[in-house]
Simulated assay, not measured.
Amino acid sequence: MSALREEISALIAQGGPITVADYMELCLFHPKHGYYTTREPFGTAGDFVTAPEISQMFGELIGLWAADTWMRLGRPAPFILAELGPGRGTMMADALRAARVVPGFLDAAQIVLVEASTRLREIQAATLAGHRIDWAASLDGLPAGPLILLANEFFDALPIRQFVRTPDGIAERMVGLSEDGALAFGLRPGARLDKRANDRLRDAPQGAVLEICPTGLGVAEKLGARLATSGGAALIIDYGHAGGFGDTLQALRAHAYDDVLAHPGEADVTAHVDFAALARTATAVGARAFGPVTQGTLLERLGLDARAERLKRDADAPARAAIDAARSRLAGTGANEMGTLFKALALVHPALDLVAGFAPDEEYRETPA
């Protein structure tokens, strides 16, 4: 039994079952045994590969999105160019290389990476050598001013709570101990939700699971309020859905799905992002939202095919095949492919009515629960 599993078991034995959110928090961010505290999860040697590591095209197109948005905002100078959860810094490096073609953009940008890990900050500094980089531990630590923010696979790692429609009412899914002392899921009856969530789940079929990410909604609220008052835009890309029900809690270990309770601290534990909830929260405090659209749609609208063809022009046959494979992986339209599973949402200042990659009729509109 791992040290973290022993600690979680002891915590439950002493204080009773814990929420799924508390379990995720411990698994991912425990100061001594947490997954992101102790491991290098990215890339083929880790547990998962993110879009920026699949191909430079991803980060380059995101960089051009940022530069285009900056121009639509009136070329503010200075402005904050920030990234939430920047990993190794690969996406930002590719984005900056592409965005340099827009006169004035890099000169006006104060680059800030929102990263709490000292270990990852050192890797990011090496990746982005040649650029002046500042760091913040959280969204609250960003400097004042107009903001263009990027977030790729950030929200999926934020802890969720799960609520279940049962014959006896709404219950919360908890992590407790089985009779033999193993970690096990159970239900705590009598859960209380806000009126909107309560009404949705009350009218859902028996067994329906509603996932709520309090931390993610808090980030969306702060971000929406800042964009509405200080100006700017944010692009959020992650795997998820536009509202709905279902148990999406999952664990990845060595590029394969793992039992969520089997290896706490040794597997990446995530959940699908509810983009409708993020949009609803941000627009409630004054921002506008566009999307979500699929990642494939976004990248194709930003020029993925043209960029792939340009890279292939001077490449040999194996390199051309690799570019085609990366393009397909990033924007594939199959039900279980990244281009479909991943979605993109733009949050913007209320005066911005055109956003690259999104059609005007894709603006988010609140609908009754």
Rank of each mutant, 00 (worst) to 15 (best):
A279I: 13
A220F: 01
R313D: 06
A45M: 09
T69Q: 03
A126L: 07
L73D: 02
E362G: 04
I80K: 00
K343H: 11
I18S: 04
G16I: 07
E115G: 04
E53Y: 05
P360Y: 14
W70K: 12
A277Q: 07
L61V: 10
E309G: 00
I12E: 03
P264I: 15
A271H: 02
A228R: 01
E266N: 14
T367C: 02
I62F: 06
L11Y: 09
P205Y: 10
A208V: 04
D68W: 01
E309F: 02
R307D: 05
D22F: 01
A108S: 13
D94T: 15
E25V: 00
A3M: 10
A325T: 13
L106N: 09
T90N: 13
K32T: 10
L84A: 03
A125Q: 14
T50N: 06
L201Q: 14
G303A: 12
I54Y: 02
P52N: 12
D238S: 07
D168S: 15
E266W: 11
I123S: 01
A317S: 08
R313G: 00
A51N: 10
L187I: 05
A3W: 02
R173E: 00
R288S: 15
M338G: 10
F358K: 11
F290R: 10
T270P: 06
G243D: 09
E6H: 09
V260E: 02
G46H: 06
G240P: 08
F342S: 05
D353L: 14
E122P: 00
E153N: 06
L96I: 10
G85H: 06
L304K: 08
D314E: 14
L84H: 09
A126S: 13
F342H: 09
L227P: 03
T333G: 04
E211W: 09
F358Y: 13
G265I: 08
L217A: 14
S117A: 05
E362F: 12
L128K: 12
A267N: 06
G145N: 02
R132T: 14
A277P: 06
L193A: 06
R161M: 01
F185T: 10
P189V: 15
